[in-house]
């Protein structure tokens, strides 16, 4: 059963935060959504999985050192930067 405590727990895992009103609405939405998702619990799991993969991973490229993008290019989208680094809040 979905409740605000579970919503809070999931919000923490999801690195999201909600006001009390938002938390209630999210709990309500999730309750309705999970009711639909519950359908998968009724699937007969005794049916053996069929080994068919849409993706062929055999043709993987070699793990080789290649050229990277210049640091200054990569930093173009950082909000706050200093020299060749992006700035984060103090953690210690």
């Amino acid at each position: 059963m979905f409740n605000t405590e579970l919503t809070r727990h999931l919000a923490e895992l999801s690195k999201l935060e909600f006001t009390d009103a938002e938390l209630d609405k999210m709990t309500n939405d999730m309750t309705n959504i999970i009711a639909v998702m519950d359908k998968v619990c009724g699937f007969d799991t005794s049916k053996k999985p069929y080994a068919l993969d849409a993706v062929d991973y055999k043709d993987l490229r070699r793990d080789e050192h290649g050229e990277s993008y210049p640091t200054e290019k990569i930093l173009e989208n950082a909000d706050i930067k200093r020299g060749a680094t992006f700035v984060v809040p103090k953690v210690v």
Partner: peptide
């Protein structure tokens, strides 16, 4: 993430982490 994502994106993230 709270300010940057819209409601539907938040619902999908929450559902995904639930699953």
């Amino acid at each position: 993430r709270r300010e940057g994502f819209g409601d539907e994106v938040k619902r999908r993230i929450m559902l995904g982490n639930y699953a």
